[in-house]
Design a protein around this nucleic acid. Sequence first.
DNA 1: AACGGAAATGACTTCGAATGCAAAGACCAA
DNA 2: TTGGTCTTTGCATTCGAAGTCATTTCCGTT
Lengths: 334, 334
Amino acid sequence: MSEKAGVTSYDVARRAGVSQSAVSRAFRKGASVAPATRARIVEAAMALGYEPNAIAQGLITKRSNLVAIIISNLTNLYYPEVLAELTQRLSLHGVRVLLFSLAAESDVEEVLGQVWRYRVDGAIVAARLSTEQLVAFSNRGVPLVLYNRVGEGVPVASVCCDSDLGERALVDGLVQAGHTCFGIIGGPADSYVGEERANAAINRLAHHGIKAEFVRGQFDYESGGAGLKTLMELTDSKLDALICVNDLMAIGAMDTARNIIGKRVPSELSITGFDGVSPATWEAYQLTTIRQPVRRMTQAAVAMLLERIESPDISPEQRLFAGELLSGRSARLL
Amino acid sequence: MSEKAGVTSYDVARRAGVSQSAVSRAFRKGASVAPATRARIVEAAMALGYEPNAIAQGLITKRSNLVAIIISNLTNLYYPEVLAELTQRLSLHGVRVLLFSLAAESDVEEVLGQVWRYRVDGAIVAARLSTEQLVAFSNRGVPLVLYNRVGEGVPVASVCCDSDLGERALVDGLVQAGHTCFGIIGGPADSYVGEERANAAINRLAHHGIKAEFVRGQFDYESGGAGLKTLMELTDSKLDALICVNDLMAIGAMDTARNIIGKRVPSELSITGFDGVSPATWEAYQLTTIRQPVRRMTQAAVAMLLERIESPDISPEQRLFAGELLSGRSARLL
DNA sequence: AACGGAAATGACTTCGAATGCAAAGACCAA
DNA sequence: TTGGTCTTTGCATTCGAAGTCATTTCCGTT
């Protein structure tokens, strides 16, 4: 078994005394090969350390068995879990992952060029795509599933965690528990989930006749503390309910509230997050948040994508998953 | 610009009134094409939305421009950062990432089969490889760089963060600050870094004539708390210095110490970690730890790999980076 | 006008596996 | 033995771009 580079089906064929076609057939199930022949071929292949060249297979079959995964910022703490899940699930189906991680959202265009070049069978995207970019996918016939985003102006298959339901649960709980002065820390203006969640919270508060102060953050730890400080100023320190559109900012805010500002959480200030990342459940935080059902969502995304790879004409579908309210100890909820 | 699937160089050639060869040349720098011709070709290519088929290129040139990245558990909190860095750096060099994330270490063998099939130009691996597996890389002529691991029995290019230096700094600091009862929480027995760091700590303590209690964890938050409890029992609650081989366990231990056991950190119990993940710097923890120089390490890994892809015969090299001591507030150090 | 050398271009082959098609065997029945 | 059916097998072609080599074109010289 002296595995060497560049062993081809011809090498195997020669050693087994058959034609190259036979070798090819021996490796695809359902092909017409005599059992004895197949055995000889497999033996020869093992002896030579032969592995079919996926590149050549891809060229002839027009199936690369590659799926592109495009994620804007992997350091988000939430995405690694998603990525790991997606990768492993796709693996089970014999599909390989071509990973594109963006330093800046604006890199998408360049990345797409590479996606086309590699003739991927499909793509799962957790980054903002313009309408033209969405159209490009459909023109090129590359099945696409958006993760936690929906197509703007164009119907596209997508998997999302319901922002409205989630924020509604949080807002309602906070309102009913008697909070009166609300603040919201949103995401950057160009983030889809950020806007969705912030708007969901704002709308639900409006439904209760409450107007909240609003500031933007960058989804990171520091933004939480900074946002909280700003909101305290804006509200003359009357703030008693802080809604953050992700957990990381909520955690940052908690730390700042306790250690810098000196507000008790949750007795003086309730703080909520969104995502359900693992630090949210740590003893020190016990964050009240909405946990995204990552396993079900990734499972759905993979299933939808594979379906569309098999049958390219399946119509777009949006799957909205309800998050689970995680009642921690960072907020007084009713 | 009605980009469609399956535009080939022949299509472009026809539209530009040239041969396929000309199109090919127009897209590679340094080739002999008249400026005017190239212009016509580029225009035609744009009009058709042509992108060279990387699969076909890979087949003929025997360069896939793909690099495999194999990471055992992405949920480790430390690896996402590494992965993002690696991906982006490789991108800059026109190299694409084929990601393999392992659910269990034992999946490596199966994954390697796929690595061979895709004829990757090289691989960066942060997972345990057996000697046979290491040899397989060299037999197949696939350049390999190990990340935070070294080849066992076989010389292999690798990039590591120095465990000895790091643990020595921590141990010396703790000893000099007067700690007397030491406990160590290691990693699973099959983890390379886990064993390295634990041994480094044990050895350095021995050098000071101190013997520490030792328990194993799984690198996760829960293991920290559980490990601490066990160590408290083993030491009749006399434990006053806890060395964890990664930050996550240290964080878990801190939370348990403060909130469950009721020990003050660091006045009654000093806790140290390793890695320098972002939560370690959070207000609530301010962990005393060794920060791995991720940027320099990934930078080195990429550089080493690319070098070896260009010149396959470069001899193996180990690059050991010293970590930076992050003096937080979780340990009394001198 | 004729020639030489360089630049530009195209025809053809190549990479490695898959597959349509035809030929060759295998097997059974009459 | 012959014919017919079904299974195996090999030949030849294909996928799309790169690159070799031969040819053509272009330009400057004399």
